[in-house]
Design a binder for these strands. Structure first.
Length: 640
RNA sequence: GCUGACGUAGCUCAACUGGCAGAGCAGCUGAUUUGUAAUCAGCAGGUUGUAGGUUCGAUUCCUAUCGUCAGCUCCA
């Protein structure tokens, strides 16, 4: 007998050689049913794996993150098998589980399109019905290589060849008699366990992500242990589509794109209101936090970009032009301009920390295939700022930046923020002591604020470490926006100095930070986050006043005028349309508040309040409503 | 940039195997005077992304090109 210790600490006795599946059965029939794989002493294994000695054993179900991965991975195998049956000449590359589903990269002469997906799905269903079993086999390297070579699976052969020398054996999963794939496993015992799945899309993908290598066909799919979960997932995808800022931008008349300027957004009047409100808010915060604001030119002499290192590192993304036969470049970043500003005066230590902000419009040549609404454009405005400080001020400055980021995100409705700290990459400049100082400053600042973060070793910029802030929107999608970078390189390259108390010239440290990142992108993210129903302070139209019929236009106009005098963006809709139609228009344009006025309201000096998506709130005196509206705007309140 | 799909009225989408380019919404004109998500009627709206080609005839087939979308790569 052996002793099996379960995750909850309970202990069970089993005969030696009992399988993980038998342990699951011993615990209960429900668990045995839900079991996908197991863990023996922390190592993931198949259910059929025998336990030979005393061990820690865990049963993995879909609910475990690892179980989910196994579930999806097995579905990827299922899809690969179906494809091999339909197109035996197909060669398999890789097919992992991913964050929301799985994919398989396949090389085959037939061009797949979405139309072939149902055919593959039908084949998969047949394999599920047949409950095709999985069998694991361990082969030594040479045998495995010969096995795949003989089957013409050249990608698998390449993977085996690329394995580190110390790897002696390779595991293979056989599904049924005619399908095999190299795989670490574990896998579900048979395809019957796949209860519900859907293939979503086909796209090209490079073998090993290298654009110089073979383009493969990638098929994406998703699978769930129950139909309801699949239905929910599909609904979520539709919800995301409904919130797409590119579609809402059109519907709400916020911005547009044209063939004449691919990747260069046109901001319409309504989009401009939101854009300016975001900037106004940001400027208010800048004042509170003792920043000064500057503005530097869009085009500067090319020499500057040689000096800054951008020509070496960023040339591909830059636009160049000639003025009077001299070479110029359109700025892709604002820092060199800011450095010119710093250098235009002598600075005393008394001035530090110096906080210099710039809403700088930058241009970057992005590859045509990357462009994506406002999320990926060729020109955008950074809410940029550079802090120049003494080394001993670094930490306090970083803390200030972190506080700034969180304050702005809170106001904008983002509560879930994921923070990452990236440290020194292999290719970098500066000495270790300086890097350590900078990294510690970032780390200490995060710790002092009690912020959890993910460490990305070696992911920093070549000139310094950085903190990135990722916003999680309502659909749990993550967007990198804010960044705080410590930079010792630029002050060096541009020979920045300040005068120290002893009259010596000292080198300041530079912090580079952005909060929205790109104002355009941030606007796009907010559009999706609020599904176009912006908080009142941002809404292009904040209030629509609707008289029930024409005789009440005068009273409605007076209400509207009152709001307008108070600075509210108000619209009087006294068109010759039915009340319902005008309300519908206001609702589809996502106006946060509608004030309906009829005889009753007129006589009482009141309005009937209706809020976007919430319906009627009630009848209130005009004074009270005006006060509420003003307060909601001033407080930048989010009402949902 | 690469692979694939797509491009028809301001918007959303029709148009069989190549045979007179159509609808809803929006717009304009008129009627209707409205109590919480679409009042009715009429009118107007097009070089079918662009440039070639095949054909008696091309929105439809072919080539090129531009753009968009899904990915890959890259990034704010």
């Amino acid at each position: 007998m052996i002793t099996v210790t379960l995750p909850d600490g309970s202990i069970r006795e089993h005969p030696a050689g009992a399988t993980v599946a038998q342990v699951a059965e011993g615990i209960g029939p429900g668990l045995a049913q839900a079991a996908l794989a197991g863990k023996i002493d922390g190592a993931a294994v198949d259910l059929s794996t025998p336990i030979e000695h005393d061990a820690q054993v865990a049963i993995l179900t879909y609910r475990d993150p690892e179980g989910t991965e196994i579930y999806r991975h097995s579905t990827a195998h299922l899809m690969a098998m179906a494809i091999k049956r339909l197109w035996p000449e197909a060669k398999l590359a890789i097919g992992p589980a991913i964050e929301d589903g799985f994919y398989y990269d396949i090389d085959m002469p037939t061009r797949l399109s979405e139309e072939e997906l149902p055919q593959i799905e039908a084949e998969m269903k047949a394999l599920i019905k047949a409950k095709v079993p999985a069998r694991r086999e361990i082969l030594d390297r040479a045998t495995a290589r010969a096995f795949f070579d003989q089957r013409g699976e050249s990608y698998k052969v390449e993977m085996i060849d690329d394995l580190p020398d110390e790897v002696e054996t390779v595991s293979i999963y056989h599904h049924g008699d005619d399908f095999a794939d190299m795989c670490r496993g574990p896998h579900m015992p048979h395809f019957g366990a796949v209860k519900s799945f859907k293939l979503l899309s086909v796209a090209g993908a490079y073998w090993r992500g290298d654009e110089n290598r073979q383009m493969l066909q990638r098929i994406y799919g998703i699978s769930f242990p129950d139909k309801k979960l699949l239905a929910e997932h599909i609904k979520m995808l539709e919800e995301a589509k409904r919130r797409d800022h590119r579609i809402l931008g059109k519907q709400l008349d916020l911005f547009s794109f044209h063939e004449e300027g691919p990747g260069f957004p046109f901001f319409h009047a309504k989009g401009m209101i939101i854009y300016n409100e975001l900037m106004n808010y940001c400027r208010e915060e800048l004042r509170k936090r003792n920043y000064q604001e500057i503005r530097t030119p869009l085009i500067l002499n090319e020499d500057l970009w040689h000096r800054s290192g951008h020509w070496d590192h960023y040339r591909e993304n830059m636009y160049f032009t000639k003025i009077d036969d001299r070479d110029f470049a359109v700025k892709p970043m604002n820092c060199p301009g800011c450095l010119m500003y710093y250098k235009s005066n002598l600075h005393s230590y008394r001035e530090l920390p110096l906080r210099v902000a710039e809403f700088g419009q930058v241009h970057r040549h992005e590859k045509s295939g990357c462009l994506h609404g406002l999320f990926r454009v060729r020109t955008f405005t950074q809410d940029d700022a550079h802090h120049f400080c003494m080394p001993e001020q670094l930490e306090a400055e970083i803390r200030g930046c972190i506080e700034f980021v969180f304050a702005v995100y809170k106001t904008c409705g983002f509560e879930n923020i994921h923070v990452e700290l990236s440290t020194r990459p292999e290719k970098s400049i500066g000495d270790d002591a300086v890097w350590e100082l900078a990294t510690d400053a970032l780390k200490n600042s995060l710790d002092a604020k009690g912020i959890d973060y993910q460490l990305n070793p070696g992911d920093g910029a070549f000139y310094g470490p950085k903190i990135d802030f990722h916003i999680l929107d309502c659909l749990k999608r993550s967007w990198q926006c804010a960044t705080i970078q410590v930079d010792f390189s630029m002050p060096e390259r541009f020979d920045l100095t300040y005068v120290a108390p002893d009259q010596s010239r000292q080198r300041p440290v530079m912090i580079h930070r952005a909060i929205f990142g790109s104002v355009e992108r941030f606007l796009g993210i907010m559009t999706e986050h609020f599904a176009g129903g912006f908080p009142m302070w941002l809404s292009p139209t904040q209030v629509t006043v609707i008289p029930v019929h024409e005789d009440l236009s005068e009273y409605a106009a007076a209400v509207a005028e009152r709001l307008k005098t108070e600075g509210v963006r108000v619209h009087l809709d006294d068109r010759n349309e039915k009340l319902g139609a005008r309300l519908r228009d206001a609702e589809t344009q996502k106006v946060p508040m509608m004030l309906v006025v009829g005889e009753k309201e007129k006589n009482a000096g009141a309005v009937n309040v209706r809020r976007h998506k919430m319906g009627q709130v009630g009848t209130l005196p005009v004074d009270e409503v005006v006060a509420q509206i003003l307060e909601e705007i001033k407080e930048r309140r989010i009402v949902q």
